[in-house]
Design a binder for these strands. Sequence first.
RNA 1: GGGCGUAUAGCUCAGUUGGUUAGAGCGUCACGUUGACAUCGUGAAGGCCUCCUGUUCGAGUCAGGAUACGCCCACCA
Length: 766
Amino acid sequence: MENSEKKWQKYWEENHVYKYDEASNEEIYSVDTPPPTMSGKMHIGHASSYTHEDVIVRFERMKGKNIIFPFGTDNNGLATERFIEKEKGVSSQRMERTAFIDLCNRTLAETRPAFIQSWKDIGMSADFDLNYSTIDKESQKVSQKYFLDLLKKGLAYKKEAPILWCPLCGTAVAQAELEDKNIPSTFYDIDFDLKDGGKITIATTRPELLSSCSAIFVNNEDERYKHLISKKVITPIFNDEVTIIADEKVDKEKGTGIVMCCTFGDTTDIEWYLGHNLELKTSIDKFGKMTALAGEFSGLKIKEAREKIVQKLKEENRITKETSIEHLVNVHERCGTEIEILSTSQWFIKILENKEKFIERGREINWTPKHAIHRYENWINNLKWDWCISRQRFFGIPFPVWYCEKCGQIMTPDEKDLPIDPISSKPKNKCSCGSDSFIPEKDVMDTWATSSLTPQILENLIHKKITPLNVRAQAHDIISTWLFYTVVRGEYINNSIPWKEALISGFVLDPKGEKMSKSKGNIVEPKDVIEKYGADCLRYWATNTGWGKDIKYDENELKNGKKLITKITNACNFASSNLKKEAPQELYILDKYFFIKLNKVIKEVNDLYTKREISQAKTIIEKFFWGNFCDNYLELSKSRIYGEDGEDKDSAKYTLYKSILSIIKMFAPIIPFTTEEIYQNYFFEKEGVKSIHLTKFPEFNEKLIDEDIERKGDLMIKYLEEIRKMKSEKGLSQKTEIESFKITEDLGAFEKDLKATGNIKSIVKE
RNA sequence: GGGCGUAUAGCUCAGUUGGUUAGAGCGUCACGUUGACAUCGUGAAGGCCUCCUGUUCGAGUCAGGAUACGCCCACCA
């Protein structure tokens, strides 16, 4: 099958079957396709999720729409840097910035074609000429343009503030890049001296932050400590004088009920720092080492400092208790390093003040499945930070910004000059203060700041305003990033939703229902599946589930797909010498009946595809094809096909032609290769359309409804089944001739077919 | 702790707006074909639809609750 699939893939490409037609007047159907991150190979989750998307697009194409289905890759930011570092065995931090960027660009150019090929291999019907990379010049232009737009609208700002920081990557990160990790730790009870004599005991897991202790907190209603409020405390080792403050956020039950606030250990520290106007004391630097503030511990890594400080506290007999615990901490999703909070200067996009608006917009979008919106709203409701988009990294889109050295004024380029790199260029004019020396912004934008603009990147590609697009398809894991951020940008650019419909797929799990991971060794490669079964089988399996639901990898379903494909191929080959496009004078009664059934299925399948119920549509077509068409219709029409030429035989030939064409058309969105093969072999010449995927989806025909014929036909099938059952129960061959068969209701013209197929000598009416 | 999802045959899952004996595929068993079908067909066995309470003439389906599993978020002193 693979060879044949390759052949059609090539055919589609050479004949521009999926090309967006600028000249067409048909209704546009535009798709915001996920640009996959180029950090390695396509995984089975991609294969599944993109198949779901592709099925819908193929259906819409067959409904006559003018499809805009681009394909991009996301390749800047940390994920890409890590990929390049691994691939090339280099360290970005030890390389010259420009050399590293150059290496990234070269490596991406090398790997990109093979990467994209995987998407072609699964039969994706994207217009691969509508192609972008989130780091290419055009994307840079779009990204910088809309950054400047945000700046102008006052929606982007730079601010020194406590921000989530990854000490390993040496960069700020966004809330959405955090992950939970269970980490063993120790709770230390430490004695602090009160200035006026006496002591208190606080519990902490992070004694290394002692030098940044800015205050001590107790709960306002804690009777044990009420008398201590406003008293002064001397910190151990560092001998800083700090105040005991009351705050309701202190949990009386936790530890000793007394907390030291360090700037910063966690998000509560930030709230206290801001709310109580505390002093900022920074004890950890950008690379996770102790600052000068930590005195004798400066220069040590966080963990080393913790050990040393604990040792010293023990020497001073200040540690009264140690409790081993395991607690969840936030780590950076890219490297697993524990996140710190540092006060640094970063670029932000305002999002907190417009939470309500984003929720409203979310409600304007048509979600499949409906419940996916809860995850969206839940995320927004729990947002705590504005969106930090600056990264202290190398491979990303630069901020188009300089600062006046004299007055600090922000300088920006003209839109027509974009994209620019502020490091290698200068503002055209002097600053309003008269100075002409500028400092370039060295930070780069996070990749989401660009991938959130995929609708605008697409508009830029086709030079046409098409937002809001028709559909966004993606998996549920990036609702809080890609989906949410795209809504944010859409709102800020157009005051509208970015797309009308959001299709959310689930994850692929291993056969046991567990997540696939390298460490478990249970990863399934789409490439292997395609080699063994073909892309159509992969798609058959992938469409076996509903939207938003996780799907297990199931070899059995792939085999079923294979069986279906064999069956279709066989049935079509069998019928191939008996296909006739021209209608006979009068349709044979059985054919009329079969068309009535087919017509019903067409309506049903059409409705299901429209409702995005792919797996149900698939089940209905399959059942109809296997049961009604193969087991019944083909068997019933064999006597005419094998018989002599004539009107009745022509009627059968015509019915075969029309019905097979309809059936493969209905299957086409799901198994595009097999159906194309059949179409090209038996229908292309007569139909003239260059690909089945450009033909029109079968249409429901109201005129075909005929209840009398349908009822009698159904009855005839029922009798036929009774005969089969009877023969089966008696252990007889289905070919055994039976003398007579009793029927209770009139079958009209169908009697003949029942006799022929059931091998009945005479039918007796009662 | 907050939000969401799932629970149906041995396995994987369908069950649309509540309506007679709850479906499919795989697996099992029996039989038949090998004259489209590296097979295919016919049939059989197999289900307290997780549990409880309600609404209703009627609940797998609706409402409330419980349990189990999974996911997202919060909890990091």
